[in-house]
Design a protein around this nucleic acid. Sequence first.
DNA 1: AGTGTTTATCGTCAGGCAGACGACTATGAT
DNA 2: ATCATAGTCGTCTGCCTGACGATAAACACT
Lengths: 252, 252
Amino acid sequence: MPYDPSAFPPFAVTVDLVVLTVRRHSLCALAVRRGEPPFQGRWALPGGFVRADEDLAQAAARELAEETGLCVHDPAAPAQDNGAHLEQLATYGDPDRDPRMRVVSVAHLALAPDLPAPRAGGDASNARWAPVEELLGQVGHGRDGEPLAPLAFDHAQILADGVERARSKIEYSSLATAFCPPEFTVGELRRVYEAVWSVALDPRNFHRKVTGTPGFLVPTGGTTTRQGGRPAQLFRAGGATLLNPPMLRPEV
Amino acid sequence: MPYDPSAFPPFAVTVDLVVLTVRRHSLCALAVRRGEPPFQGRWALPGGFVRADEDLAQAAARELAEETGLCVHDPAAPAQDNGAHLEQLATYGDPDRDPRMRVVSVAHLALAPDLPAPRAGGDASNARWAPVEELLGQVGHGRDGEPLAPLAFDHAQILADGVERARSKIEYSSLATAFCPPEFTVGELRRVYEAVWSVALDPRNFHRKVTGTPGFLVPTGGTTTRQGGRPAQLFRAGGATLLNPPMLRPEV
DNA sequence: AGTGTTTATCGTCAGGCAGACGACTATGAT
DNA sequence: ATCATAGTCGTCTGCCTGACGATAAACACT
């Protein structure tokens, strides 16, 4: 059967990004302010159309680079700097999720270490890192006390799904190291877990767990006192990607 | 900004289904034979175009009903018969995954109890349940000994991803009950795990684990001897959807 | 009726891991 | 010198799992 354009309705396909990082002990997501209708002036997740010759993962990596300057961490060359983790999250295709037309959005999840101020095509006032509870409306108002409008489109749902994915995935994988700089201490890694899960973990049991899991952390030999207190050993992420047995998330 | 059709390339959006069931102690997937090019005569996953007014989940449920007659198990009305579990799996959008045009496929995963022979629009010879190792080419030939061509398009990858999702998800959720009839015994549930994981589990430890997890299984009071041997208690799936601590998958 | 086979179910025991928490170490700040 | 902060090493206890013995209740034979 030849290609029959009348046999199916045309769609626009976009990628949206849930970019997470840990700043000042809380889990933050990248939000951009919309400059045009619909939802003009409201905050949204970064994203854009998939180009005609582009893979979905390529489109997501391109958008990520455009918005943050981050390169995607290539699993084949894991030693590179400034690399972020990127994975597909889910696809959202409600017929009326965009009032203009039928848009299917393939959401991706990116995890990055703490970064300098974001840039959105050079315009800093139109992009920011915001704590996820703030963006999800669980605190009711933004940093300046102004009440925060909900995210545009269905982006609150997408963000919630991305946060939940990150929360569950650090349980059984070494993904939490994606929030850390290339070299980090056990305490810094623990603060990542604490920020993502919003819990307090016992430093001694955490230390025993992560240093006792073979392949998870490899010591670099160096130490640092950047967190104050006694110098701490520096580690790099080991080759192990799966954590078995998993890190247990305490009951709320 | 008004809707500008030149700003983005048009895509076709489809749903493809990985429908899994357990038959004769092995994990099987639904495959349909393609009646038209490309890949004419080859086996493929069932699927079809998303309609203009349809949600992605609706489209997947519609395709599932068309191919198998299964209704989707509504979480709000969990007592209904013949209900299958359906969830979104992942989205595949390589620019050249379909030689005809740019197609983005939102794959879904469906888990169903063992069913009578499949129907594909009434034509039984064009649809069948095949063991997944067979479809993934890990055994080299089909039921009749004829060598099996690989699945059409990128469906081998989609099927592999779906199988992996099912294998990992029954670890920490009550999803394995989706492979069972409404009432089932502990042994039947164990054989589901054994088929999906391709392992042998200790019946005594398995029994202790599943009956000791609160909310997982609720006894119906009845018993059955349909498996032979001593009569076994019948259970229904309890309200718990998460299994904590998870069922441990033995090392290979 | 007895014997073997099959499946279900209960119990016991040892090892491993996690939570709770004490103790000690090494730095910077006052 | 003293204190506050953070890191690291141990201990103890309880829970869960894997290994496996023992018993129970059906069916199929002879």
